[in-house]
Design a protein around this nucleic acid. Structure first.
Lengths: 339, 339
DNA sequence: GTGGGGTACTAAAACGCTATAGAAGAGGTA
DNA sequence: TACCTCTTCTATAGCGTTTTAGTACCCCAC
C-alpha cells in the first residue's frame, strides 16, 4: 500500500546517487542536462512526489499557513467574508504548493495558545491575523515566537507587522456623503464590538463626517455582531421619538436582521428608513428590498493577503503596508430620500 | 530564534539517552518511574514540543485530516453548514492534537487531484467526502489511494466506505405530512442539482409521500443551489395557473431568495404561499417572516464525523454506517394553512 | 556461583530528503 | 608533465523522532 517511491528508488533505477536525483528534481546545478532529463523521466514514470515531512525535517517550510478565527460557536454566521478570503488565499498558495489551515477557536486566548502550539510544532510557516483589536495582544506574541505574520485590516503607518488594508474610514465617509445628499439628517450606526480597530475607525469617521456635513452627530451602538443584538439595537433606535432616518450596519447579517425588525415595526424601507450595510455578500441580495452596501473583491483581497504572507515568510523583516481598493458603494433598493 | 529544544537536549540535561527520553515522553515502558518523572519535568521546563515532521517521517500520522469543498467561487454562500461541521470536527480532533485542513476547489476533478496530491505527499491522515453524488467517482479514488475516508450523508446499507448520515427521506416525509395536515394540496420542491444523492433522495421521498397523502405528486425543480436559480425557479413555479401553495427548498439560501421573489410578486407569505427550508442557519431567522425549516445540531454532526474518521484511520477496514439524529421540523412564520 | 529472567537503560538504525565536502575525469595552460 | 579549473557526480552527515537490538545490572533460585 504505502510503497511509494523514494529518491533512493529513482537513483537505483537510473544508476546515480540519491544526491544527484535531488539536484535534478529541484532544478539546481550539479547534474548534466542529459542525466537530469533521464531522472525526471523516471521520476514521472514512478509517480514520485516529495515527502513533505522529510523536507520539513531538513529545515524546509511546512507548506502550510494558518488562519485563525476567534468566534463564539453560537454566533457563527458572519464568516462568509472569510470563506472568500480563504478561497483567494488558496489560489495563490496552491501555486506554491502550499495550503491554508483555517481553524475556529473560542476566543483570543485560545487563538494565542494555538499560535504557540503551531510555532513549537513547526506546523505552519506563517499566519494571518484578522479582526485586529486596539492594542492587540497577538502582535507581540507572533513576534516573540518568530512566526511570520501579516495583519488584515491594519492601516497605513508602518507597524510592527506587514499588513494588507483598505481605507474604511474613507468608505464610511462615502456613505455619509451619499446619505447626506439624499437629505438624511439623522444617521445611526449599528456597530460591532468597540474593541475592534475597524469598528472604532468607522465610528470615528461617521462622527467626523456627520459634523462636516452639518448633520446630527451620528451615534454608534455597539453589538457583538450577532443578528440578535443587531435586531435589538435597531429596535431601540427605531423606538425613539427622533428616530434615525438611516442606519448603517457594520455587517450584512445585522443589516438583514435590522431590516426585518423595521418591517415588523411597520416602518417601511426605504421610504421611512434607509439601510446600508458595510459588508456585501449574497445575503444583501436575497433580502427584500436588496441592501445598499459597500462591496469589494474579497477574493482578490485574499489573494493579496497570501502574497503578502509569502513575502513576509521569505523576508521576516518586511513591514510593508499594502493598501487595497477602497470598498465601493453599491446602491440597491434599501436606500432612498426620506419622507 | 529557532533554538527549540529537542529530545537530545533533554537527554543531555537529564543525563540519559535520547531513546529513554522518547520512552518517557510517550508513556511507554522502558524507564523507571523516577527517571520518567525527571524527564517529564525537564521537558516541561524546557517547553519541549514534538516536531511533527520528524514524527511523520518515522511513519507516524500527519495529524491533519482534509475536508474539500467543490464549489464554484462565484456561488459561494451555502457554506455556513460546513463552517459548523468544521467547528465540530475541530473540537474532537484538537483533543487528539489533530487539525482539519479545509480546501475549496472548483470542481470534482480538482478535488480528486487534491486527494492524489495529499496522499502522495502524506499530507493528511484521512478525508471527509461530502456532497455525495450518484455513482461518486471519489469513492474509488480514495480507496485505491489507500486514503482513509468517511462519507457524510451516504445512507445505511454498508457501502465501500464508513459513513455518517441522517435520514433525510424521513425528514422530507415529515414536511409533506405537516403541509398535508395544513391542507396544502400542491407542493413543489426547489431542489439542488439532481446529481447529488441527497437531492435525489429528497425528491423521491416527496414524490412518494405526496402519493400516500393523495396530493398532486410533488414536482422537483433542479437548480445549482445558487440564490439566482432558486429565485428563477420560484418565479417560474409561481407564474403558473395552478401554482403551488407550498414550496420546499433544498437550502436556506434558495428559500430566502424564493421568499423575496414571492414578496416581489405580491404573493403573501405565509397566507398565499408557505415556504419550508430543508436547511437551518441564521439566515432562516433574519428574513421576514422567519422560515419554517428542518433543523439539526450541525456542530454535533461534525463531531461525529471526526470521530468516525479517527476510527477509519485507526482501522482502515471499518465500514460502519452511523445514523445520526433525523432533522426536526421547526415551525416558524413562513408556513400556514393556505387561503 | 552459575544460570534464568526481569528491569533500566544505551547504541544505532531508520524514516526521506537536502546540503556539503570531496573525488574523478575532462580540458586547458604553462 | 605538472598544475589548475570546471563539470559532474558520489559519499556522507544531518534534520528530530521512534524503534529495535543489545548491554549491564540486579534479584532470585538452584
Amino acid at each position: 500500500m504505502s510503497n511509494r517511491p523514494t529518491i533512493a528508488d529513482i537513483a537505483k533505477r537510473v544508476g546515480v546517487s540519491p544526491g544527484a536525483v535531488s539536484f535534478a528534481l529541484n532544478g539546481r546545478p550539479g547534474v548534466s542536462e542529459q542525466t537530469r532529463a533521464r531522472i525526471l523521466e523516471v521520476a514521472r514514470d514512478m509517480n514520485w512526489r516529495p515527502h513533505r515531512a522529510a523536507r520539513a525535517l531538513g529545515g524546509a517550510q511546512a507548506g502550510v499557513v494558518g488562519l485563525v478565527l476567534a468566534r463564539d460557536p453560537r454566533t457563527l454566521g458572519s464568516e462568509q467574508f472569510y470563506t472568500q478570503i480563504l478561497y483567494g488565499m488558496q489560489d495563490v498558495l496552491s501555486a506554491r504548493s502550499s495550503a491554508v489551515q483555517m481553524q475556529l477557536v473560542r476566543d483570543t486566548a485560545a487563538e494565542i495558545d494555538l499560535y504557540r502550539l503551531w510555532a513549537s510544532e513547526h506546523r505552519v510557516d506563517g499566519v494571518v491575523l484578522v479582526d485586529l483589536q486596539l492594542d492587540d495582544p497577538r502582535i507581540e506574541v507572533v513576534r516573540s515566537l518568530g512566526l511570520p505574520a501579516v495583519t488584515l485590516g491594519q492601516p497605513g503607518e508602518p507597524g510592527l507587522l506587514p499588513s494588507v488594508w483598505a481605507d474604511d474610514a474613507e468608505a464610511m465617509t462615502t456613505i455619509v456623503d451619499y446619505l447626506a445628499a439624499l437629505d438624511h439628517r439623522r444617521i445611526a450606526h449599528v456597530a460591532g464590538p468597540p474593541i475592534y480597530q475597524h469598528v472604532a475607525r468607522r465610528a470615528a469617521a461617521l462622527h467626523e463626517q456627520a459634523l462636516v456635513r452639518g448633520l446630527r452627530a451620528g451615534e454608534s451602538v455597539g453589538t457583538d455582531f450577532s443578528d440578535a443584538q443587531g435586531a435589538a439595537a435597531t429596535r431601540a433606535l427605531l423606538s425613539r421619538a427622533d428616530r434615525p432616518t438611516a442606519i448603517v450596519y457594520d455587517s450584512d447579517l445585522m443589516a438583514a436582521a435590522g431590516l426585518a425588525v423595521a418591517l415588523e415595526m411597520g416602518i417601511e424601507v426605504p421610504r421611512a428608513l434607509s439601510v446600508v450595510s458595510f459588508d456585501d455578500s449574497v445575503l444583501t441580495r436575497i433580502v427584500h428590498p436588496a441592501l445598499t452596501c459597500l462591496s469589494r473583491d474579497t477574493y482578490a483581497l485574499g489573494a493579496q493577503v497570501a502574497s503578502a504572507l509569502l513575502q513576509a515568510i521569505a523576508d521576516p523583516s518586511s513591514r510593508e503596508a499594502i493598501q487595497t481598493e477602497t470598498p465601493r458603494l453599491v446602491v440597491r433598493g434599501s436606500t432612498a430620500r426620506p419622507l
